[in-house]
Design a protein around this nucleic acid. Structure first.
Lengths: 186, 186
DNA sequence: CTAAGCGATGACAGGCACTGACATCGCGTG
DNA sequence: CACGCGATGTCAGTGCCTGTCATCGCTTAG
């Protein structure tokens, strides 16, 4: 746990989850997390723009993965199916981390400021998906509409995956089920 | 502008818009706003939970008005129409304040933290609308779906109202136009 | 083998957002 | 007129976040 050990970022993220679970988000200072990871508070803020951001690293990588998958999808796939495929691809990086996701979701649900940040991340994800669809030639407003819909489906599916013990083990299955419910609405 | 003049809250809100427009949101401290309104920083935080909140007073009252209107709507009105009527009723308190709304929108658009707060307000509005619909007997998931749709329509219409010089002067007309576009999508 | 270069970190100072505790002011009420 | 009550002022303190500069450890050219 020395100062110059590698993976300071990973150590901080793990320490944060642990401390937030133990004493709560507001009762944990950025300095506490840094200390638990063997670095200083200054290093914390070099890796994360703000205290909340340490919980949303996976959101960013998921967004990147989703966009890549959308751009790489077959040309003849319908816009909504493309966007949903992006959600599945983005969700793949959570495979085998259901417990972690549950813990993280519990922390976020308990704090309004964190829910606010989650909304921002979802909005950014939506915008990224819409942009990727447009890059494939999907016109507006279809692109935005499909993006909104796909992200909503992901949101619902993810919520069930972490909160409902009866939900499928595979997040992709949860997404498929939510998408089926959506189509049944039409 | 003495300390014990009435309407300290209103004075602070007006001073905030002015200062934010002049030097920007981040370059204006809560103490600056309070000082311009003739009160102390402590009084600022007694009236507003945090610095951002001073820009979202109208969001809260709009939510209340919208819910009241939804609960008071005729029984035979369809869920989506009811929700949209709520949006029109909520938007009514902005009548004659288009310039103010424009100024406020510009401030929010220039600052990520403020856009984040706006997303939270929209999410809360959506939840409130959904709850009001449920209170009228609209079942899930229709209530949530109609709420999401209506708030999205409002969001788009409001954006046009403040950003597009060609948009109708009456926000209600903007909402009606956006709703028409939505129905054309189906 | 050594020294220079470079990215990551530490150390320190400081500003601003926000809070708790207590004193004070102005106003309505008995 | 005394009293209570709500709004405000005052002060001290914590935590988030940033700028600046020194330092560390690894890499690479010589």
């Amino acid at each position: 746990m020395g100062r110059w050990e590698p993976d300071a970022r990973g150590r901080m993220m793990r320490a944060a989850i642990e401390l937030f679970t133990e004493r709560g988000y507001e009762q944990t200072t950025a300095g506490d997390i840094a200390g638990a990871a063997g670095v200083t508070e200054r290093t914390f803020f070099r890796h994360f723009r703000d205290k909340r951001e340490i919980l949303f690293d996976s959101s960013d990588t998921m967004g990147r993965n989703a966009c890549e998958a959308i751009l790489a999808a077959p040309d003849d796939l319908a816009p909504l199916d493309t966007a949903l495929a992006g959600m599945v691809a983005g969700g793949a990086l959570l495979t085998g981390r259901r417990d972690y996701s549950r813990q993280r979701a519990e922390i976020i649900a308990a704090n309004p400021a964190l829910r606010e940040r989650e909304l921002l991340k979802l909005a950014r994800l939506t915008e990224g998906v819409a942009e990727a669809l447009r890059a494939r030639g999907v016109p507006e407003p279809t692109a935005s509409l499909a993006a909104h819909t796909a992200v909503s489906v992901f949101h619902v599916a993810f919520g069930r995956w972490v909160g409902d013990a009866d939900a499928p083990d595979d997040l992709a299955d949860c997404i498929a089920e939510a998408a089926a419910v959506l189509r049944a609405l039409t």
